[in-house]
Write a protein that binds this DNA or RNA. Structure first.
Length: 102
DNA sequence: GCCATGGCTAGTA
DNA sequence: GCCATGGCTAGTA
């Protein structure tokens, strides 16, 4: 079972202007198939201020969801210097962080 | 039984 | 576009 606290811990390491994916978080925590579960956990994020869940997107660079509305997610990411081409993060490969497995 | 995913396959152009 | 996957919640018995 994947713990919400662990997901939030990983999230706090993502710097401004960078992103990661649901699947990468799942892998980093040793649950390669739990990507969807990660999404559910983020949906329940109790504290968007300290846990930047807007920096998590889909494996193909598409936006994914946001509890507070996708528009807001876009706004936050743009403010951090990211851009969107056709519903995808521009230069996705360069914007992804590499996550360590603990 | 839902869903903030992802990987794989069919099959179109 | 289909479906396995994992975590959660509603709501029946």
């Amino acid at each position: 079972m994947i713990k919400a606290e662990d997901v939030y811990d990983v999230l706090r390491k993502i710097p401004e202007g960078k992103v990661t994916t649901y699947g990468d978080i799942a892998k980093a925590l040793g649950h390669p198939k739990a990507s969807r579960a990660v999404g559910r956990i983020l949906h329940a994020n109790p504290n968007p201020i300290i846990v930047p869940c807007h920096r998590v997107v889909m494996s193909d660079g598409k936006l994914g969801g946001y509890a507070d509305g996708v528009e807001k997610k876009v706004r936050l990411l743009k403010k951090e210097g990211l851009d969107f081409k056709n519903n995808k993060v521009e230069n996705f490969e360069k914007k992804k962080v590499v996550l360590k497995k603990n």
